[in-house]
Design a protein around this nucleic acid. Structure first.
Lengths: 338, 338
DNA sequence: ACTTGGCACTCGCTCCGGCTGAGTGCCAGA
DNA sequence: TCTGGCACTCAGCCGGAGCGAGTGCCAAGT
């Protein structure tokens, strides 16, 4: 029984602290939440919770504040999924349905997510596994420089410049073009990669043709597109009232380092589930005083890429998780259709 | 004579204030700069400058601070162009020469500019006027949806999805493809636009072919690419020690609104010259307490696009202007070559 | 075995008064 | 026109007092 009430106290403290941004005391707690016990009882519980590491006291005679461990317990056991309201759902779908382009879809998603959560949103470009190759074009920029353009069924265009070891003449280029075209056009990306790999192996020696084929394999695998991501809503960082120079500066820098962000997203890309990383749980020290809420998304509910938000550990976890999940779902659906 | 010294005083105040971020008094002034007059004389000059609106006093008994008008006078008449050091020049050119891609060039420029100036950098994508059309590809995504991809000589790829009024079949598509290809391939963008325009007019009625041609014209004109820009170095906003919520929040928001930024850049795109807009001189109220330093760039010193930085009015104008100009020059040169 | 009311205690926050010092404006003399 | 001197102003910085929210603990009640 006490155990149950203690959890209720923890939940109440988290909710109040998130709402007010101020340490919460025993009296205010029993008033605002319908706990049918006296402040003294709550005090005992709070002391116990503090011993166990779920709460902390900024100063001796101040209210309690949740620790990272406290937030962890909160999201793991105390969160009731808060479904989005009908209006919100409608807003999401109409906003995303207006997109024409993959770029447009992604940038709209970022905006949407940052506005819904009032946090910094990050969306990774979806991988291409499910899409097929429409067309491959090779353009000679110079005798030893080749522009390779792959047009995919999603409407996406991947491009890449190759530096060749040796110059390639027009006829060789035409040969290569038709060869590559036959091997790749119409195939799933993965199959095209396979076919091109075989092609490269079949050719003897390190001639330009083999080099091109090999680089095509690389260019068309998922790496390039997985590296792309979009960040939005940085203005929400300005709400970090206190601790500004200390916290926001490195955060802003890290947000421009996409490599760092990719590591952050990459670590927790389980499909379907919303992942929450709280405070120093993550591997990146710039994010030690923030929480990261992410989830995978992609067509057919395969998690092809990751999206999420970055915010202070003191955040509305249920609401944020719901928003992240909702956006990921609608985004997945759009990828399914288009 | 007095007039001359007053200007020297103004210059000294601007320089000191920019360096120390604190109101500067008469005594400190004569010490740090080699003015061969007494503090009292300087005080008289400062009083005069204040009457004319070039200086202001935060409090009754504090030092002086330049007003926007003071900065204006400073950049117009008191700035001696500070050339970049050899090391800086080398750093710029090696950093930019490493780029392989147009996207890469632009993103490197943003990073470079923000690091050189320690401000927020903005780079607009160059227009395509000088580049030629390598290849145009039409791909049917659906009977009434067409993906148009134009590959340009810069290595840039422009893509666009067209919604047709009526379905188009394979033979019509093939016709259109060869027609468009012949009209555009190898031509300068402007010539290709012309040729396609004629093509569209020659075809009677509003058939799909005419529609495609018209939209191609539009897609390949400069609009799309001019709208693109990249922002970097937002972390430098964290150095706005005071006045945080009041100033930085709206700035961060405005920086994500590319439309606003384009207006900002667009207004001052005179070629070759570095333009400085100080404080409320600009049309956009979010930027009323910042200065914007921009210049045009492009191949052959035609100003095809604009780049620049946004920072506090209290900034190192000579250094910033030099950096902006230097980056624009190197960037232009690279566009010339590639 | 919990819960509760009471009570003493802690300590961050705010207000207030005094002091300090940088900086000014003005004036009279060079 | 410049300079030294002088009185004045005022933001910023203590340091102490008082307040009040909140705590911990204990003894009594259920």
């Amino acid at each position: 029984m006490q155990e149950e009430r203690r959890l209720a106290v923890l939940r109440a403290i988290v909710e109040d602290y998130v709402a007010t941004e101020e340490p919460v005391g025993s009296k205010a707690l029993v008033e605002r939440h319908g706990l049918n016990v006296s402040p003294a009882t709550v005090r005992n519980d709070m002391a116990a919770l503090e011993d166990e590491g779920y709460l902390a006291q900024p100063h001796t005679s101040a209210g309690r504040v949740p620790t990272d461990k406290g937030y962890r317990l909160f999201v793991d056991r105390l969160t009731t999924v808060k479904p989005m309201s009908g209006a919100e759902k409608r807003a999401i779908s109409t906003f995303l349905d207006g997109a024409v382009d993959l770029d447009d879809v992604v940038s709209r998603s970022v905006r949407l997510l940052s506005q819904l959560t009032r946090q910094v949103a990050v969306v990774q470009y979806p991988t291409l596994s499910r899409s097929t190759v429409r067309h491959v074009e090779l353009v000679a920029l110079a005798p030893e420089r080749l522009l390779v353009v792959a047009i995919l069924s999603t409407g996406r265009v991947e491009q890449r410049v190759l530096e060749l070891d040796a110059p390639i003449d027009d006829t060789a280029l035409a040969d290569l073009r038709s060869l590559v075209g036959r091997a790749a056009t119409g195939e799933l990306i993965s199959d095209a990669v396979l076919a091109l790999g075989l092609l490269a192996e079949a050719r003897p020696g390190p001639g330009p043709v083999a080099a091109v084929a090999e680089l095509l394999v690389e260019a068309m695998s998922d790496h390039r597109s997985q590296e792309r991501l979009v960040v939005g809503g940085a203005a929400n960082l300005a709400r970090y009232g206190d601790s500004f120079d200390s916290a926001v500066r490195p955060l802003l820098e890290a947000l421009e380092e996409h490599v760092v962000l990719l590591r952050l997203l990459g670590e927790a890309s389980t499909s379907g589930m919303v992942t929450v990383r709280i405070g120093a749980e993550g591997p990146i020290e710039e994010f030690a005083s923030t929480s990261v809420v992410t989830t995978g998304y992609g067509p057919h509910d395969d998690a092809l890429a990751t999206l999420g938000i970055v915010g202070p550990t003191r955040m509305d976890y249920p609401g944020t998780m719901a928003a992240v999940r909702a956006v990921a779902r609608y985004l997945s659906r759009i990828l399914d259709e288009g």
